[in-house]
Design a protein around this nucleic acid. Structure first.
Lengths: 206, 206
DNA sequence: CCTGATGCTGAGCAAGCGCTTAGGGGTGCC
DNA sequence: GGCACCCCTAAGCGCTTGCTCAGCATCAGG
């Protein structure tokens, strides 16, 4: 079991039974490395130490595997953003917390995040529609913080919805470039990004 | 011919002969919509109005098509960033120009940009290494502007390389979310992003 | 010892993949 | 007209894909 597998696999203990979880963890790894369409069901089963047929005992199709990963992953991402948005503190504090924890998740669980954020198009129509609902809620959480900050006078944001888009986009893209072998830890990237985002919305003092 | 095809196809007139260009434009469209691995050579040829075999008269493999797209696209992106970085004006003006034009390209040519930025892993090892060299030069161009601004005292950037990464990441991710049917034009997104980036690096006046 | 449920495998099917090859048909030059 | 040249197609090859299915091992309850 690789380091990445150990670090990211621990998060899936809500998936039972054990064989189903092992398959799901293997799928996350494979989808993240090669992409959904370039991954074969034989590859997933092989990584989980099973025969190709074993996959179909626990999941109806390869697409159902992706959907399960995407739904659980988006659920976690949404919980991170909402608990920051609806938590205590000033708008600045809540925005910094939201960006920090969201970025730490995208960097620390960058395999999961890569699948969650970049393989949406591979989902079937109904599953995709369901996931897009979750995305809208993520957007709403960030927008709420920005709106609060504008109202309280902490922030100067001429275009709230555009800036919401930019903040989320900035955080999400961490999953694409983050490299475990790189110089930065997830916490360091989180700190850097929280600072950059606060600067983006801060009232201009000059 | 779709609107997108007309808008983006016009940029490939350096590719000759005509049949090779039509195939390449069709490939850009297909790769952008479905991804490299989910696109079949039959689909590309079909979009170009040719039989599946016609593709192999102009390109050795499907991967060579991707490489041609990626190389030309990265070349354009690099030229955009370098002409802003090495152009006239203060660091602030050059940074704003770089972000504005880079973002306008990613939004206006978002199909091309999506392939260029998100299908790197589908390239063969040598081709990928060649493209990564171009990426490093993009990174260097932005870093140069930030470095100049810090030296001249225009900018306050504690982590130049981290901020370089963030600025490029922000711009690149436009290709993922930009929607032609959306409310914003490429120019509007470019203006918004140039403003946000200037705020990120501006000296703190409080 | 039998029975039924559960979890898995070996073998393989139909379909679709990237790519090849033999040959046809138009165009320009002599 | 004759010929070479360039594009392109129809057909299909060898292989891999997602997925299926009959059957085997294990174990609990009687």
């Amino acid at each position: 079991m690789s380091t990445a597998e150990r670090a990211e696999g621990a998060a899936w203990d809500e998936v039972t039974p054990d064989a189903a979880r092992r398959l799901l963890v293997a799928a996350v790894e494979a989808f993240a490395e090669r992409g959904y369409h370039a991954t074969t069901t034989r590859d997933i089963a092989g990584r989980a130490g099973m025969s190709p047929a074993a996959l179909y005992i626990h999941y109806k199709t390869k697409e159902e595997l992706l959907h399960r990963i995407s739904a659980i992953g988006h659920g976690k991402a949404l919980r991170i953003l909402e608990s920051a948005a609806d938590g205590p503190g000033t708008a600045s504090e809540r925005l910094a917390e939201a960006v920090r924890t969201f970025v730490v998740w995208h960097a620390g669980r960058h395999m999961t995040a890569r699948v969650v954020q970049y393989e949406l198009d591979a989902l079937g129509a109904e599953h995709r529609a369901e996931i897009i609902q979750l995305r809208r809620k993520c957007d709403a959480a960030v927008r709420r913080i920005l709106g609060d900050g504008v109202q309280s006078g902490e922030f100067d944001v001429p275009d709230v919805s555009g800036t919401t888009l930019a903040v989320l986009s900035l955080c999400i893209d961490v999953a694409r470039w983050f490299n475990v072998a790189g110089r930065r830890t997830p916490d360091e990237v989180g700190e850097l990004y929280a600072d950059l985002v606060l600067r983006m919305v801060a009232r201009n003092q000059q």
